Computed example of a mutant assay.
Amino acid sequence: MIYGIGTDICDVRRIAASLSRRGERFAEKVLGPHEIEVFRSRLAKVEARGISYLATRFSAKEAFSKAIGMGMRMPMTWRHCEVIKAPSGKPEIRLHGALAEWFDARGLQAHVSVTDETDYAASFVVVETKEPRP
């Protein structure tokens, strides 16, 4: 059963401006431990790829926070929610700390889709209750 749905669109230029103003501190506020490594690697190779990566993660976390009905308030935090890539390339939500405990206690699972173009990043998240096992 669907628990919640969230979507978000993000202007990549706005993310680039925040990164320019605040430096890597902005990325460190938004990204979890695995994500920050990927961000730094992509940014070092091609700056635009790093910025797009940051924008898609920002967008996905906003969409996830809407799908769980919390917005950005505890236990939902930027760094406790990561969007990782499965071996197949499919994006997946990985949660940490109190957010993971809250999510698991409700028997929820999340599905995420992210996309980006030159100027925009968009995300769609569906959170559902896990089916009871027979």
Rank of each mutant, 00 (worst) to 15 (best):
A122R: 10
D119L: 15
C81I: 15
M74T: 12
S52G: 12
L43Q: 05
Q109S: 14
E47Y: 10
V126W: 03
T129S: 13
G69W: 04
E35L: 09
F103K: 06
P87K: 06
K45T: 11
S65P: 00
Q109W: 06
S20P: 00
S18Y: 03
A122S: 14
G97W: 06
A63H: 03
G69N: 05
A67V: 04
D116T: 01
G23A: 11
A98P: 12
A27L: 06
D119Y: 14
A48V: 15
K85M: 13
K66T: 09
E131G: 15
R106G: 12
T7V: 13
E128F: 03
V112T: 01
P75H: 09
L95R: 02
I36C: 07
L54W: 02
R25D: 13
R21H: 07
I51V: 15
M70P: 00
K29H: 11
L54S: 07
E47V: 12
D8Q: 01
D8K: 01
G50A: 02
I15F: 00
E117L: 05
I93A: 10
A98T: 09
C10N: 01
L108D: 05
R49L: 14
L19T: 01
P75I: 12
R57A: 06
P91N: 05
A110T: 12
T115D: 05
E37W: 00
A55V: 09
K130S: 03
A98M: 08
L31S: 04
K85Q: 15
V125G: 02
W78I: 01
G4P: 07
G89Y: 04
E62A: 02
T115S: 15
E47S: 11
L108Y: 08
E35D: 08
M1Q: 06
S123P: 04
S41L: 13
A44H: 06
S123L: 00
M74G: 09
M1R: 13
I2W: 09
M76H: 12
F58W: 12
M70T: 14
V127F: 06
A67P: 08
H80E: 11
V46K: 10
L99W: 06
E28R: 13
L43G: 00
E101I: 01
M1A: 11
A44F: 06
M1C: 08
F26D: 04
I5K: 11
T77H: 11
D104C: 13
R40T: 07
T56E: 12
D119Q: 12
F103A: 03
R79A: 02
R22N: 10
A44T: 08
V126L: 15
D119K: 13
T56I: 09
S123M: 00
P87E: 08
A16Y: 02
E82M: 10
H96Q: 14
R73G: 04
V46W: 09
V127E: 02
P75Q: 04
R49K: 13
I93R: 06
R40I: 02
M74C: 08
G97S: 10
P134N: 01
I84W: 12
G97R: 09
W78M: 02
R13A: 15
A63K: 03
V114Y: 05
R25E: 11
F103T: 04
Y53S: 09
G32T: 03
L54P: 04
V83A: 07
